[in-house]
Write a protein that binds this DNA or RNA. Structure first.
Lengths: 148, 148
DNA sequence: ATCCTTGCAAAGCATTTGCAGTCAC
DNA sequence: GTGACTGCAAATGCTTTGCAAGGAT
């Protein structure tokens, strides 16, 4: 899928929801879809500003929210720091570096069957789950002295 | 373990780290340890103010951070809203209501053996993992119209 | 022409920090 | 008495919002 395809898909999804295709949204989506660094809103802003010098941080936040609402991106909130965004939609796990906060993709996945009986989680109706790995990325590992 | 025991344990842990036992920390810990509602800092503040009318929100934040640092509590950050705190230390899962944000304890746990090969997560050294269930709590379920 | 989106600046919210007074040891 | 802790208020950092001008259909 090249850049043209990506933009066509974006337009289609936006129109299906009564929203408009704009350069700003396209630039944000293009960047997010083509990277695996799971950037923060600020990082998206700095990067996208290379293509669209006039774009504002508020617009980046709004565009990201729009993409998440359309299912074209996921928001990764770990609270400790600012939210990160993921433009990949294939199944994968996230590993978060306890030292620098960077998110690394991990190919595997956890079968739902191995989780506790969903129906019987007290009076809670379980509809989904999320697994997050923690540890140290290649850049931070050498230190190895750090602990959580 | 009654209230007296809890306070003795707290004193011991604090002293082992060169920190002082105070009424404020004791009140926060007592409340957190005796509930399973996973309160936010604000909720802890409102509740503890019943015992200590003069306590400030900043002190609650500082006390919670101290307890987390001592391993006497866990901080649950889901980003969407404010952080929540857990004073229980026995193994259990957390189920988060997508409607109201409430956290419900679920007795089970996920064996590490069922996760993807830790050592081989790309160039990432995995040291731990976290599982979070999502769905709807008893109070929000009746609606059943809502979706994620 | 319509009305959605942008960009700017200001507001909002959770959390942290500086500091003088107070308390635990 | 000494150093850590509290409470207050101000500051911080991320994110959202109000609104007039601009852009997409």
């Amino acid at each position: 899928m090249d850049s043209t395809d990506i933009e066509r898909d974006l337009r289609q999804v936006l129109e299906a929801r009564g929203q408009r295709y704009t350069e700003q949204r396209a630039a944000v989506y293009r960047f997010l879809h083509g990277t695996d660094v799971h950037p923060t809103a600020e990082e998206v802003f700095l990067r996208v500003r290379g293509d669209l010098p006039g774009i504002s941080l508020a617009t980046v936040y709004k565009s990201l929210e729009t993409l998440v609402g359309c299912g074209l991106a996921h928001k990764l909130s770990y609270g400790d720091t600012s939210a990160r965004y993921d433009g990949r939609t294939d199944p994968h796990l996230h590993a978060r570096c306890l030292s620098c906060g960077r998110i690394t993709d991990v190919p595997g996945r956890v079968p739902a069957a191995q989780l506790p009986p969903p129906a019987r989680a007290g009076h809670f109706r379980v509809t989904g789950y999320r697994v997050e790995l923690t540890g140290y990325c290649a850049q931070c590992d050498p230190g190895e002295a750090a602990e959580a």
